[in-house]
Design a protein around this nucleic acid. Sequence first.
DNA 1: CCTTTATAGTGTTGTTATGACACTATGTCA
DNA 2: TGACATAGTGTCATAACAACACTATAAAGG
Lengths: 229, 229
Amino acid sequence: MPFTYPYARPALTVDCVVFGLDVSDLKVLLIQRDLAPFAGRWALPGGFVRVDETLDEAARRELREEAGLTKVFLEQLCTIGEVQRDPRERVVTVAHYALVRLGDHQVQAATDARNAAWFAVDDLPDLAFDHVAIVTTALQRLQGKVRYQPIGFELLPPKFSLSQLQRMYEIILERELDKRNFRKKVLSLGILQDLDEVEQDVAHRAARLYRFDERTYRQKVKDGFNFEL
Amino acid sequence: MPFTYPYARPALTVDCVVFGLDVSDLKVLLIQRDLAPFAGRWALPGGFVRVDETLDEAARRELREEAGLTKVFLEQLCTIGEVQRDPRERVVTVAHYALVRLGDHQVQAATDARNAAWFAVDDLPDLAFDHVAIVTTALQRLQGKVRYQPIGFELLPPKFSLSQLQRMYEIILERELDKRNFRKKVLSLGILQDLDEVEQDVAHRAARLYRFDERTYRQKVKDGFNFEL
DNA sequence: CCTTTATAGTGTTGTTATGACACTATGTCA
DNA sequence: TGACATAGTGTCATAACAACACTATAAAGG
């Protein structure tokens, strides 16, 4: 009989740090727990992995069930196997992070539904388990990755202005960027499609709208191109 | 009764991609399996996580037991939870990668011991399970990380010449670097300590030896310094 | 309709980093 | 002492980066 006593057969969970971009803040989606342990505390959306699903599938299912989110950008972050991290019994969790567009209807729904809410990443409430550490790791990963992979677009609407794009980077990287240098650089990458449209319903000069041209991006990557902020 | 039927309670393993640097190749340490499944096949060192140890502890224990390695550089890589990846039953594995100095005595021992051997990373035998995919991921991670984190030194002896250092990067990145530009750049980082010593027993002009000055590096990082190849 | 307000959009220049490139120096060995 | 193998060294042209301030446009409000 293999793998019996001394080997761990832990319960397995997935947890997701869901990032959304506000006007002025990077937000994280939290769910208020109604069961022990940590009943009443805010926690990352997540839950137990089922016997017939992969980790990625489990994470997506939890996002759908707990927050009504589908088709989001989702990546594995790290796995935490501290023996006593769950007071009940050993629970190993595979942490993920996700990027969503806060404007989306489904995201609105998520905010309305049950005990879910968005919190500014630098002003989080007390979290259950070791979830603060997971958020910290996720933020570091995002800050690192956003500079060499075009994942930031996942946080913006499909059509966006260069100002929005710049603000996104400023918020994530927590530092100001020079407007002219930023525009020069980002346009020179040649992965933005100028839509020849402008913003609507703004109380000032309307900005030109762009779209991330994933097709072109992929082609360029094949040819040895390297995205870099 | 929580977490019974529908939830997974998988066996949990750790697997390690141990990299070592040869004169002309990046090598990976493999162990020949003597048990089914995949008896006789080469596989990554690794094994089941015990009830009382963390993932990191399990990985280090396996490295010690299977390869006689201690105190190596070790980082988590990714976790694989495909349902059928092990023919016996569901086994989730947390993959790691490690960097060791091939010159070390313990590493020599590892090579001698039982069915362990080093293979060039681009000339691997058939591997058990999904271990090829893990090696591929680990290599990509190493290639990415070596450029913005001074982890490559873990593959070199404590005292090394600039030529050795350059060769290390060339081997990992799989492209040639310009000697003068490389030396200029790496010295300008100010994280190498010139030991005022030269190589011994070489059949040509002996090279100056350097050491990675971790103290200075940490200090510089605190002051906002960014290592970059 | 004219002023205010809010944001969009635009170029130049000095500085720094990068990449290309070839020869001399030093030590061992035959 | 000559052949060899590798160490070590500098310049220049080009590209990338950082700093910097004003004009343009549209809506709102008096």
